[in-house]
């Protein structure tokens, strides 16, 4: 089904496989609208959700996707783990695998941790966000949502707004969107856009109004509170003046731009409350598509070998 055993990131990920995941995800979207939102596709499959970093929506989204597919799931978070007792990462994951599991969904604060994990275990590894590296399932759900809205990705003009340097969402979106034929402009404080990033096929524009004039859709990144007022971002009002998606700013442009946000939002910082709640924001569609996308990914990586009539 998919060419790679794991989903570690979208760098170099086969274009046709991204398309296959999105197509399958639309089939699962339909399941989510049924009164009984459950199919038996992954019955007997055991998945461990390993979260070494806090997460609410990604963890819930994965867990729901697993339950909708009838998989058995176990949750593990760093705070409840033996890591606090000084056990190494290697020992922890090898112990978990020794209990006969089929897949690991992992979030980890270190870039590269999922690849590191594949060196120790045979189970399928799905990256749920690693450091400032990749968050491939987020990018896939973002692309699915764009697909739903526009009916295509090729040729779309997408602006990614905010702190690119520290964003795994941005990097996975760049790989995915460029691979699928979209145009991407990055817009954010110059020191939060990494040098050499244009080598990935994107453009940079520091002028948000020009980007708004150009774009079909925006992916607005969360401003990390810990970067606010500590030298990286001088103040909230400065950030809003330059990069905030405000009502006034949108009113200046005689076009409807689709607005996405990976969440959680800082209302009144990177995005106005009224914009977030407006029709042009498709943020809650992203959340629903997140479950469908993750069902598709799990299904294609773990259960796709069986013909399953229930999802058609």
């Amino acid at each position: 089904m998919l060419q790679q055993k794991h989903l570690l990131g979208l760098e170099g990920y086969p274009r046709e496989d991204i398309q296959a995941i999105i197509d399958t995800a639309f089939n699962f979207r339909e399941v989510l609208d049924r009164p009984i939102k459950k199919v038996p596709s992954l019955q007997g499959i055991t998945i461990v959700n390993l979260f070494f970093e806090n997460s609410t929506r990604t963890r819930i989204s994965f867990e729901l996707a697993q339950k909708r597919l009838s998989a058995d799931t176990v949750n593990f978070s760093a705070s409840s783990s033996s890591l606090k007792k000084g056990e190494s990462f290697k020992d922890t994951v090898q112990n978990i695998e020794a209990m006969k599991i089929d897949a690991v969904v992992m979030r980890h604060p270190a870039s590269g941790a999922p690849r590191h994990l594949t060196e120790f275990i045979d189970a399928v590894v799905i990256n749920a966000g690693d450091g400032t590296h990749e968050h491939p399932t987020q990018a896939i759900l973002d692309m699915m949502t764009l697909y739903e809205k526009f009916g295509k990705i090729k040729g779309l003009k997408v602006g990614i707004i905010g702190d690119i340097s520290h964003s795994r969402v941005a990097l996975s979106n760049i790989y995915g969107l460029i691979s699928m034929g979209a145009e991407v402009i990055l817009c954010g404080p110059a020191h939060l856009i990494p040098p050499y990033i244009t080598d990935l096929g994107v453009k940079i524009n520091y002028n948000l109004d020009e980007v708004l004039e150009w774009a079909d859709a925006l992916n607005v990144l969360r401003v990390q509170n810990e970067r606010m007022g500590v030298g990286l971002i001088p103040s909230i009002r400065e950030y809003r003046a330059l990069f905030g998606i405000t009502e006034e700013r949108l009113e200046k442009h005689a076009k409807e731009i689709v607005i996405m946000h990976p969440g959680p939002m800082n209302r009144g910082v990177e995005i106005d409350s009224a914009v977030a709640d407006s029709d042009q924001a498709i943020i809650l569609d992203q959340v629903l598509n997140g479950v469908a996308s993750r069902m598709a990914i799990l299904y294609l990586l773990l259960g796709g070998k069986y013909e399953d009539k229930d999802i058609k």
Partner: peptide
């Protein structure tokens, strides 16, 4: 090294 490779890997350069 801060470079296109550090961007790819999401590692601080």
């Amino acid at each position: 090294n801060e470079s296109v490779v550090s961007n790819h890997l999401g590692l601080p350069g």
